[in-house]
Each structure stands twice: as C-alpha cells, then as structure tokens.
C-alpha cells in the first residue's frame, strides 16, 4: 500500500494570516486620533485580532477586520471608523 504519511501530513504551524489577509474583510477602517489618545490600552485589550500596538496605539491594517470594537470602547472617542474606499 502506498504510504500517505509523506504526501499528506495534516499538520499546521502557528503563523499570522492563517485566515488570509483579513484586512480585506474591512468595510470601515479604525483611525486613531493621537491628540485624544491617553494610551489607556483599552482598545488593545479588547481587540480580538491583536493588531493594536499597546504602546503606540497603532494598528496593523493588514489584518484588522474593522469590527469597530476598539472605537466603541475607547473612553475618549479617539478612534473613528472611516469608510474604506
């Protein structure tokens, strides 16, 4: 019988983008207004995608799905959801 172990190993490895470039799912883009940001890290803790930098409050748009949770939870209203072109 032909061995299948070499041809097909159903094993995956941890990697970003396992669901693709999920940034393409976005209809709205969260944009942080640095002036109003107190660096409280609330957006960081709730972002399901782990795409917010906790120190800089910058967002990795390659994977951000545009869910809007960060904008909803930001206590100073520093994040706006801008419609993608």
């Amino acid at each position: 019988m032909k061995s299948v172990t070499k041809a097909y190993r159903p094993i995956s490895w941890p990697m970003k983008g396992a669901g693709g470039d999920t940034g393409s799912w976005r209809t709205h883009r969260p944009v942080v207004d640095k002036e109003n940001c107190t660096k409280c890290q609330i957006c960081w803790v709730y972002c399901p995608e782990a795409v917010i930098d906790r120190n800089e409050s910058t967002i990795d748009y390659r994977y951000c799905k545009g869910c809007g949770v960060c904008a909803k939870e930001c206590p100073t209203g520093a994040i706006s959801m801008i419609k993608e072109e």
């Binding site: 983008g17 669901g19 999920t22 399901p48 995608e49 990795d60 390659r62 994977y63 799905k65 869910c67």
Partner: peptide, 9 residues
C-alpha cells in the same frame, strides 16, 4: 495570532 479565521468582533 492576527489574521485568524474568526468573524470580526
């Protein structure tokens, strides 16, 4: 990791 297959939010 970022870019997983879950729905947004």
């Amino acid at each position: 990791l970022s870019g997983n297959g879950a729905c947004g939010g």
